[in-house]
Design a protein around this nucleic acid. Structure first.
Lengths: 231, 231
DNA sequence: TGTACATCAGTGAACGCGCGTTCACTGATGTAC
DNA sequence: TGTACATCAGTGAACGCGCGTTCACTGATGTAC
């Protein structure tokens, strides 16, 4: 390995250390992440961070990207650990993985799904990684649909044309060939998943539901019934 | 009116002005509300605020309480504006009122339902007002149930005993006499409502759903079907 | 009704803090000949 | 292999800012006799 690439490797290691330290700091500071605090933890002077990140916002962006990646990987791994043919198990595994990840990384979860950070504009790069989980869920539903296994619960409300159009566009972009009605319910499940995790992580269930784990699993099963994933 | 009570009235007016100004400031600063900023807007020196609020946290608490009240009132008024016998209309009216309020007051919504504010502990007083909306929803379902109008969608997943116990306790506290299965689905609707509004307000739907209003109404109707509110 | 005193709102200076960012610098590490 | 130069990481001081909170104070408003 040439001398130059040694320096490059040390550099990437440093970048990793900065990001790791910043993630730890997030856990105590919340979104009010401070460069000086990170530098302090590393044992470096604050200005030295500018060798690696041009500004605080760039560090934040890097953290957000990494968090999406971390969450997306956890969800993907959970789905892959289930039998390829058992779509309900895969669906529930994704849901549980999201919840577990959020419980283990509450501040990072807040960074991704909580209030927007004042004065910080998420750049475009953060849009694609944010879609991993919902794409995973849609893929699972698509597999069940393709296998002819989907038995959606009959509900009276029809899909409005405008919404159908929006869903159609998304389906065509992904080429999944899912019926709009199915994606509609996938989205309901997606909202339910993050709605419930957000309630739990942000303490909105405190004092009402004690058996949160059981409750979560139960709600996710209700949604799976609604979508019609085979038991 | 005695001289003393004039002074008292001026005082409460001042408290109102401070809160109103702070609410406006929230819209630009986000949760990083600054006392000095509020004082500047009022045209007063920062230390003068301490005549009215012992600390920044107390001002925040007052704002949170007021916001819950404002949201709760909007939801209650919306329900009351519908025929007492039309529970689906009342349910949907509450959902729409929550969305409209959130759209009109996004930062306050974030204050109530977004990431916890670093370094701020919500005191106990904020617990009760936070429950208004869900109690309203449960009440609507209870009315439909009492009238024998509820036709819940059949789903396979049974209610686990632990969750049933938690729900039973809540029902007994409120004395609503609702079956656990119904409250279970009310909670699903409650999560769906705030999950979807949070997605929308925090921009998580950008680039996917364009017809957000139609989509929202549609999703809320699906939930109403699930609970079994008569059309 | 008038006066002496008490209460209260608001002032302005100060304390101590932390922040993001810049800049000229020192040494160490790498590169070219 | 050795030397002169270029690159880069990290330093430390500084800038300019804003923050929450305290404190002794000035005047105005209210109270008691």
């Amino acid at each position: 390995m040439s001398a130059a690439s040694v320096r490059a490797r040390v550099r990437t290691e440093m970048i990793e250390e900065i990001k790791a330290t910043a993630r730890k700091r997030l856990a105590t500071d919340g979104a009010g992440l401070s460069l000086r605090g990170v530098a302090r933890d590393i044992g470096i002077v604050a200005s030295a961070l500018y060798r690696y990140f041009p500004s605080r916002d760039d560090l934040l962006t890097a953290l957000i990207l990494e968090s999406y990646e971390s969450l997306g990987n956890a969800a993907t791994r959970a789905a892959d650990a289930r039998p390829a043919g058992d779509q309900r198990a895969r669906w529930l595994a994704v849901c549980t993985a999201v919840r577990d990840w959020a419980t283990a990384n509450p501040t990072e979860y807040g960074l991704l799904y909580g209030s927007p950070i004042p004065g910080y504009d998420a750049p475009r790069d953060t849009v694609a990684p944010a879609a991993t989980v919902v794409l995973l869920l849609a893929g699972i539903a698509a597999d069940a649909e393709a296998a002819g296994l989907l038995r959606p619960a009959p509900l009276a409300t029809p899909l409005p044309d405008t919404v159908r159009g929006d869903l159609r566009m998304l389906i065509d972009q992904q080429g999944s060939g899912l019926p709009e009605e199915v994606l509609d319910r996938v989205f309901l499940g997606w909202t339910q998943l993050f709605g419930l995790v957000t309630f739990e992580i942000f303490g909105r269930l405190d004092g009402t539901i004690n058996a949160v784990g059981d409750y979560f699993e139960h709600q996710m099963n209700l949604v799976a019934d609604l979508i019609g994933l085979p038991a």
